[in-house]
Amino acid sequence: MGTSELIRLEDLQASRTLSGRKHVLSILVENRPGVLARVAGLFSRRGFNIDTLAVGPTDDANVSRITLTLDGAVHPIDQVTKQLHKLINVLKIRDMEPSETVAREMALFKVSAAVENRAEIVQFAEIFRAKIVDVSRRALIVEVTGSHDKIGAFESMLRPHGLLEMVRTGEVALTRGGD
């Protein structure tokens, strides 16, 4: 009765797992009013936490790119992308493969820099390829670009020297190669 080619129920596997790692989603959306609110609203309504978020234009004036990072240890990423796809203004979503992705964040740090400390800060900046972009009597502003982790490392170097203020962008990312 041909049952040999049938599927044994015991062999069936369900697919719904937490990846356990950070994900960078690159989302192409129509450049229209309110689209960011739709995306952000979806995240809060479904209880998904965005770690970082960056929005900007693309080479096509009708299309914007939202790059956001979230934790695949807490959120089932395919449920997140499927929900995002239901938004009519969302054109394309890419869950970026870490090994094939260049991701960068930028940060500005304002450090109190008494004259005796300055040399050391300038030295850190060199190691991290950061730039001193403003110098005043009491403080320096340092600009640094790099991976999320690199900026974190730079921040922990600066902190002991009196970090007055800092600002970080969300991560932006592109896939390597020509596609």
Partner: peptide
């Protein structure tokens, strides 16, 4: 049970219950 789920909305698949087919 194992589950087969036919739905037009992909986001419904495995939303609440992990689906096998």
């Amino acid at each position: 049970a194992k589950f087969i789920h036919i739905d037009i909305d992909p986001a419904e698949i495995s939303k609440n219950v992990p689906v096998h087919i």
